[in-house]
């Protein structure tokens, strides 16, 4: 589904990632871990085409990401739902419209999507906050709203960058539960985190693989997790 083949990435001359190879097969659940600044977010961006590798090749849905034009890239991003660490909402729109944003830009008729939208709001537990603006939300609510936005187009892959970075343990478990449910629905999940407790909790529920970035390279984490 997403395949990294000897991918390297340089930030202004400095090498951040080198010879990174990985494959996200359909329905898999991967964690990406490593120290701060190791390149987790960069690797995620390479996966959904926000960055282009300086060497190697990234393939998504059997397409070379580097060869996609701007319109094709936009269409690719509709097939990969992304939850950003800072959520990235349009603060002038209420939560419900932010969650519906992928539908809006895809030209869907929102009046016909109201039931799905309401169902999604119920699923992430935000039906009471649908008309609040993003700055009024707590950290956990923002992450759940971001997750709802990421899945509204029913993408095949969901990528989350530190989704539990700014929430308490209880909320991180709730978010994990949502991701596990998505995985059970057949979605491919890739989560970047340095929260080892979250990884252990996930391992108790679904089959996961843990990838660790260390010394610019990607390794399969051992049984210590």
């Amino acid at each position: 589904m997403i395949e990294l083949d000897n991918v390297g990435y340089n930030y202004g001359g400095g090498e951040l990632l080198t010879n990174v190879s990985a494959q996200l097969s359909p329905g898999s659940f991967h964690f990406l871990t490593g120290p701060s600044g190791a390149g987790k977010t960069t690797l995620l961006k390479l996966c959904y085409g926000a960055l282009s590798p300086t060497s190697g090749r990234v393939r998504a849905f059997n397409m070379d990401v580097k060869g996609l034009d701007r319109n094709q890239m936009a269409l690719l991003r509709r097939r990969i739902g992304v939850v950003h660490q800072d959520c990235r909402f349009l603060d002038h729109l209420p939560v419900k419209e932010n969650i519906a944003l992928p539908l809006t830009v895809a030209g869907k008729d929102l009046s016909q999507e109201q039931d799905n939208l309401q169902e999604l709001l119920n699923w992430v537990g935000l039906s009471e906050r649908a008309h609040a603006n993003p700055p009024e939300l707590s950290g956990g609510e923002r992450q759940r709203a971001a997750l709802a936005r990421a899945v509204i187009l029913s993408p095949e892959v969901i990528i989350a960058d530190e989704p539990t970075g700014n929430v308490d343990w209880e909320m991180s478990q709730r978010l994990l539960q949502l991701l596990v449910e998505l995985n059970r629905m057949g979605k491919t999940i890739l989560v970047a985190t340095h929260d080892l407790a979250l990884i252990r909790a996930a391992k108790n529920q679904v089959q996961t693989r843990v990838l660790r970035i260390s010394d610019k390279r990607l390794q399969l984490a051992g049984a210590d997790l």
């Binding site: 701007r70 269409l75 990235r88 944003l101 830009v105 895809a106 187009l153």
Partner: peptide, 13 residues
């Protein structure tokens, strides 16, 4: 614009 592009908006939109 950045958010719109991240959620799959095409340049024309």
């Amino acid at each position: 614009i950045e958010v719109l592009r991240l959620v799959g908006a095409q340049d024309s939109y």
